[in-house]
């Protein structure tokens, strides 16, 4: 579904990605784990078209997406919930969800998806007329995921959805990610919380200073001694 081949990217003179390759097949949850500064967010920014790779290929559903503008990439069904949530703080919860559905032309489907988001995150329905900036961190993360769901993604990119959240809320969000996946959404999950991510992922990649150093199924990586030492604190 998504194919990243030998992609390099830099910010100014600093090389952030040094020829990474990864793929995501339809129906999978794939996770990309690694330390701070390994290049995880840059990888997602390149996929979403917000940062242009210096070299390498990026194809989604067989189409070359490197030259595409971000809003065209969203229209293909490749949607990102960014790091740090980035909800629109002075817009209401409902308006934030509406922005998620910005590219859609099927009002009936959008209506159904509001219900779907509200049933997965009932707190969002309770707060739907509140400005998003007044929500707690966990609620904002739920909103960020819900907002991306409103775009009806075929492939959902999630950047650090557990960042700074209480364990109970992290568990809830990972549960929702699995539910979405079971309902047919493919997921590429970037996480520092490697244990949680590898538990729900079909496959995973380990990114270290701009290079993919390991890959395997979630189970394999969880059992790998190097992964355990570096990312699982064992």
């Amino acid at each position: 579904m998504l194919n990243v081949a030998n992609m390099s990217a830099s910010y100014g003179a600093i090389d952030v990605l040094k020829g990474i390759s990864l793929r995501v097949e339809e129906g999978e949850i794939v996770t990309l784990i690694g330390a701070n500064g390994a290049g995880k967010t840059t990888t997602l920014m390149c996929i979403s078209g917000l940062h242009k790779p210096r070299s390498g290929q990026l194809t989604f559903l067989g189409q070359d997406i490197v030259p595409m503008a971000p809003h065209h990439i969203v229209r293909l069904g490749l949607v990102q919930s960014p790091e740090g949530r980035k909800v629109f703080p002075r817009m209401t919860v409902a308006e934030n969800l509406e922005m998620g559905a910005y590219t859609r032309r099927d009002p009936d489907g959008v209506k159904t998806d509001y219900e779907r988001v509200y049933s997965l995150f009932p707190v969002l329905q309770e707060r739907k007329t509140q400005p998003a900036g007044t929500l707690s961190g966990g609620e904002q993360q739920m909103l960020a995921v819900g907002r991306a769901m409103m775009a009806k993604p075929r492939l959902l990119l999630l950047d650090e959805p557990s960042l700074g959240l209480a364990p109970l809320i992290v568990a809830r969000i990972f549960e929702v990610i699995q539910t979405l996946n079971q309902q047919g959404t493919t997921v590429l999950l970037v996480e520092q919380n490697a244990r949680m991510a590898l538990r729900i992922a079909h496959r995973g990649y380990v990114l270290e200073t701009g290079t993919v150093t390991m890959e395997g199924t979630g189970v394999e990586l969880l059992a790998d001694s190097r992964v355990q030492a570096a990312y699982l604190g064992e």
């Binding site: 979403s48 809003h71 960014p82 629109f88 922005m99 590219t103």
Partner: peptide, 9 residues
Amino acid sequence: AAARLMGID
């Protein structure tokens, strides 16, 4: 940036 990620031109 978030607006772009929502598909806004």
